[in-house]
Amino acid sequence: MSLVDRIDPVPPKRIYRWDLDKTYLQTDFDSLRQLVRTALQKAGEKKAVPGAAALIRELKARGDSRLCIVSGSPTQMRAVLSEKLKLDGVEFDELVLKDNVSNLLRGRFKALRGQVGYKLPVLLESRARAPVDSEEVLFGDDAEADAFIYSLYADMVARRVNEPVVYRVLEASEVYPDDITRIMRQWEKIGVSDPVRRIFINLDRLTPPAFFGKYGPRVVPIFNYFQAALVLMADGHLTATQVVKVAVEMIQTAGYNLLTLSNSFQDLMRRGLPMAQVAQALTEALSGPQALLNSVRPVPDILAAFTKRIAALGAIPAPPPVRDVDYLSLIDDARPRDKKGKKR
């Protein structure tokens, strides 16, 4: 960072907001034993989801973006999480963790598991500090309520939901009254804009993608971060070369191969995401003299695999329709997993 940047940092054009557990990190805490093991893990023992670190590095490479992490991990884990991110070469701008000791001491037991009352005000506070014209891309997972919270946040900032609905949603989500007040105050401070472009949901639990259809096409469930990279390339956040770098990391560190990557590509096409132009740009990037994947497999094989996946589908599917989100009908999604009435 130059001296000028330190005194007057360039305002971010893009903000990437990430959750940590099950989104960036491969974490299992479905049982008490797993929870304890996760808490005691050292930075070097923690494993990132394949491709996540490479994706963040590439998204940050343009220099005009900000990485904001909001995690439900306790504040006591700040040192180990910071170290893990550093080990992965990930530089963050914000890292907000949950103060569960305070919740415990104040007897706020619902807040220990609650996601809406914790994440929503943090997101709004961070947004209040961001330039009005900055775009946002959010990353969460299917384990808790990320699709719900992120969508509500996006629609609140864009004023697509009104106050009475937000009140009812927060009350139904068992958010404490002082947190509701905090959320409403923060919301008032934020200038009207429509910054959230995409919400990626990492399918850690392999929830069927149609489950997220009710949140509209802004929410994109992904089976891996190669898929996120492809969509972000279509959205203009990454170049073809950067996408290839994400793929290379997944191949080299997690056993991904041409079959799994080309299948992931076709999965997005089948869900109506605009992949045709991406395929063309990737072809050009791979055919160039700096072809990154040459070290892994001959480029013609790669091109043939992706071309076959497109041809196999016949006509290009239509994109999914845009729809308003009915938060009151989705309130079950906002509850902690063990309290959800519905089974996925």
């Binding site: 069927p208 993608p209 489950f211 299948n263 999965d267 089948r270 869900r271």
Partner: peptide
């Protein structure tokens, strides 16, 4: 779209 699966191991041919 509504069945639990791993799309990394699925390909469709029309």
């Amino acid at each position: 779209s509504s069945i639990r699966h791993n799309a990394e191991r699925v390909v469709v041919h029309h």
